[in-house]
Design a protein around this nucleic acid. Structure first.
Length: 230
DNA sequence: TTATCGATTCTCT
DNA sequence: GAGAATCGATAAA
């Protein structure tokens, strides 16, 4: 499923994912993104990580069961507008009063669908990420963050990449400052209920979370309120 | 190992 | 005004 333009960046050949890759339901895209590389550039520098955990969210216009856990389950609002935009763009939202989260928009324009990028393995830019994480915590850390936890969980991943709604919501993922590239295939992909999603949509009927089996960067599972246990 | 709780503010009803 | 696609610390088991 990996395809796209080929170009040279220094010594490395880079295969950017294609627009068509994202023009599918998020449920199909989410497992295919495990192992892909995500590159984000800013004035401070570049961070590259390998995606190890994703979740699919469907909204209006996307085939499949009604997804009550999705921000775009019923209608377009100012917050979720990017989710209805063209595929291969970013949907960034602010949550719990302190965290940003990054989604990759799927399906053709007009239909709402997105993949939440939950965790990644840091490949480049560790020093910058450590600085950003320390800044977010309001000062020097009492204990250094383990390498595998630097982009573990959606809030931490957004902080590691320096992503905020004002600056990144709606931007193209296939152009600077983003770039989503073909990566290295995971050994094994596991799936299960989504994290923190309330009700039936957070239960085993919706195994819409995907991760690389046994990978240390994958975040801990937390059931949502009233989510049925399997 | 698992459970609970506080921090903090946006979004939608 | 209620609840939220979270995180990390601390308490309990």
């Amino acid at each position: 499923m990996f395809s796209g333009d080929c170009r040279h960046t220094g010594l490395r050949m880079v295969f950017a994912l294609s627009r068509d890759f994202f023009a599918r339901p998020a449920l199909a895209v989410a497992p295919d993104l495990i192992g892909a590389f995500l590159r984000v550039t800013s004035a401070e520098g570049t961070v590259v990580l390998r995606i190890t955990e994703t979740e699919a969210y469907h909204g209006v216009g996307t085939p499949g069961p009604y997804d009550a856990g999705s921000h775009s389950k019923d209608r377009r609002t100012p917050r979720n507008a990017s989710m209805f935009g063209p595929p291969g763009h970013a949907y960034v939202y602010f949550n719990y009063g302190m965290h940003y989260a990054l989604n990759m928009v799927c399906m053709p324009e007009g239909a709402a669908s997105g993949v939440l990028v939950r965790s990644g393995e840091l490949l480049e830019g560790e020093e910058l990420v450590r600085r950003r994480r320390a800044t977010k915590r309001g000062g020097p850390l009492e204990r250094p963050i383990p390498h595998s936890h630097l982009a573990r969980g959606p809030g931490n991943l957004a902080a590691a990449l320096g992503i905020e709604r004002d600056t990144h919501d709606g931007l193209d993922l296939l152009a600077t400052p983003f770039m989503v590239e073909q990566g290295t295939a995971p050994r094994k992909i596991a799936s299960g209920p989504r994290v923190g999603v309330a009700g039936l949509a957070g239960g085993p009927e919706f195994p819409w979370r995907f991760w690389e089996h046994l990978h240390p960067t994958v975040s801990a599972f937390r059931p949502g309120r009233n989510a049925p246990r399997s």
